[in-house]
């Protein structure tokens, strides 16, 4: 493995994009940073600007109002990048899915390519870390 690919695996930076979820998933993501789960052991960091990120974490059922902004954030993440959809909401609308529901898109699929889906409402931090690791492995294969 080349050093570049290795360092991609070793230093994934996350940007957390909240797309209208209930906060349940979001606090579980933050819990993964807290002392008990401490993802910094593996060099994972949460960054403040999408321009610095490698992995985009998406939570929530994508309300239509936030779509342009979400797409914009996705475009701002420099290549190579990986998108991880966290929670049942981001995987397909979850509990908010209803054919009648005009307010949400349900899943960001049509907006951006998703690499990893983590179902659960909310998934536990362990599951989130596992999903991020899958994302990292995918990231190392991208050029």
């Amino acid at each position: 493995m080349s050093l570049l690919k290795k360092s991609r695996i070793y230093s994934p930076w996350l940007y957390h994009l909240h797309c209208g979820g209930c906060n349940g998933c979001d606090i579980e993501i933050l819990a993964a940073l807290s002392p008990r789960f401490d993802v910094e052991r593996f060099g994972i960091q949460l960054v403040a600007s999408p321009r610095h990120a490698d992995i985009l974490l998406i939570t929530g059922p994508m309300p239509k109002q936030i779509l342009p902004m979400a797409k914009r954030v996705y475009e701002q993440v420099p290549d190579p990048k990986v998108v991880v959809a966290i929670g049942s909401c981001a995987c397909g609308g979850g509990i908010f899915y209803d054919p009648e529901n005009y307010a949400i898109l349900g899943t960001p699929d049509s907006l951006m390519p998703i690499d990893v889906y983590i179902p659960g409402c909310p998934p536990k931090p362990e599951a989130i870390i596992n999903g991020i690791v899958q994302g990292i492995l995918k990231l190392s294969k991208k050029s």
Binding site: N23, P63, M69, D98, I104
Partner: peptide, 28 residues
């Protein structure tokens, strides 16, 4: 920006099932 249409959903699903949606208004 987080307009999800929850009240409408609860109205469609009835008061018996609404509590699960109510819990997911806010996860905190």
């Amino acid at each position: 920006f987080h307009h999800r249409g929850i009240m409408k959903l609860i109205e469609n699903r009835g008061y018996n099932r609404g509590v699960f949606l109510a819990e997911r208004i806010c996860g905190i």
